[in-house]
C-alpha cells in the first residue's frame, strides 16, 4: 500500500492515473458511440435501448437504475481523477520552467501538448453542456423526458447546436488520438517494436469514434434523419 501511495505521489504515478482513467473514459466514449448509432435504427429502437440502459442494464444482477448509476459514478470518479492529475502536472510543468525562452521554435508537439490541456478543459465544459442538453434537458427547449429520439433530432436540427457538437468532437478526437497512444507509453507497454502498432490502434479508435458520432449531427443537418 505504501508502495502504491509513493507511486501516486510521483509525476509518473499521476500520469499512470491519467492513463488508467483515460482508458476508462475512452472505452466509455467508444461504447457510447456504438449505442448512439442506434439512432439510425429509428425512434422505437433508440428509445427502447435508452430505456434498457436505465432499467435493465445489468439485469438480473442489478435492479433498475443500478447499472446506470454505477456507470455514472465510475465515470464521475474517472473524470475527477483525470482532471485533478492533469491540473497537478500542469502546475508542476509551469513551475518547472519559471523563466521561458525568448526565442521559441514553432513545434507541432508543443502545440499538441497545449491542445491536450486546453482541449481537455474544453471537453470538460462540453461534458457539462451535453448532460444539460440531452440528459437533464435543462437547456433543451423541446426536451421530452424519455423521448430520446425526438430530443436528439430536434436538438441537432438547431445548426448552432450541431456545429458546437461537431467542434467538441474534433477536440475530443485530437485528445484521444494522442491520449490512446500516450496511454501505452505511460503504462510502459510501448517500445520501438510496438510503436507503429499502438499509433495505428490510436488512429483507428479515434476515427471510429469521430466517424460514428459525427455521422449523427451531419445526418440530421443534411435532412437524412428527422
Amino acid at each position: 500500500m505504501t508502495g502504491i501511495l509513493s507511486l501516486y505521489r510521483s509525476t509518473i504515478g499521476k500520469k499512470v492515473v491519467m492513463a488508467l482513467t483515460g482508458f476508462i473514459l475512452t472505452a466509455y466514449v467508444f461504447v457510447h458511440m456504438i449505442g448512439n448509432l442506434k439512432v439510425f435504427a429509428g425512434a422505437e429502437k433508440l428509445n427502447h435501448y435508452a430505456e434498457w440502459l436505465r432499467l435493465d442494464m445489468g439485469y438480473p444482477i442489478l435492479a433498475s437504475f443500478q447499472g446506470l448509476w454505477i456507470t455514472r459514478i465510475v465515470l464521475l470518479v474517472a473524470v475527477g481523477l483525470h482532471v485533478i492529475s492533469a491540473l497537478q502536472l500542469w502546475a508542476m510543468a509551469n513551475a518547472g520552467r519559471a523563466v521561458g525562452y525568448a526565442q521559441k521554435k514553432p513545434s507541432y508537439t508543443v502545440y499538441l501538448g497545449q491542445m491536450m490541456r486546453l482541449g481537455g478543459i474544453a471537453i470538460a465544459f462540453f461534458i457539462g453542456y451535453h448532460l444539460l442538453h440531452l440528459t437533464t434537458g435543462s437547456i433543451h427547449p423541446e426536451f421530452v423526458h424519455g423521448e430520446v429520439y425526438h430530443n436528439v433530432i430536434s436538438g441537432f436540427q438547431n445548426t448552432l447546436v450541431s456545429v458546437f457538437y461537431i467542434a467538441a468532437l474534433v477536440a475530443l478526437g485530437v485528445h484521444i488520438l494522442h491520449g490512446t497512444w500516450s496511454m501505452f507509453q505511460t503504462l510502459g507497454l510501448n517500445n520501438r517494436r510496438y510503436d507503429a502498432m499502438w499509433r495505428t490502434v490510436a488512429l483507428l479508435v479515434t476515427l471510429a469514434i469521430l466517424v460514428g458520432d459525427l455521422s449523427i449531427p451531419v445526418a440530421v443537418l443534411a435532412g437524412w434523419l428527422y
Binding site: A93, S182, R192
Partner: peptide
C-alpha cells in the same frame, strides 16, 4: 516537470536516446 509523451526531448538529444527508455522506467516504477 512531468512527461507528456511529446518527444521533444528525444528530438533534441545529441545521443538520440529513445522514448522507449521512458516507457521502461514507467513500467519499472
Amino acid at each position: 516537470g512531468g512527461c507528456t509523451n511529446l518527444g521533444e526531448c528525444s528530438l533534441a538529444c545529441p545521443k538520440e536516446i529513445h522514448l522507449d527508455s521512458i516507457a521502461q522506467m514507467n513500467l519499472d516504477l
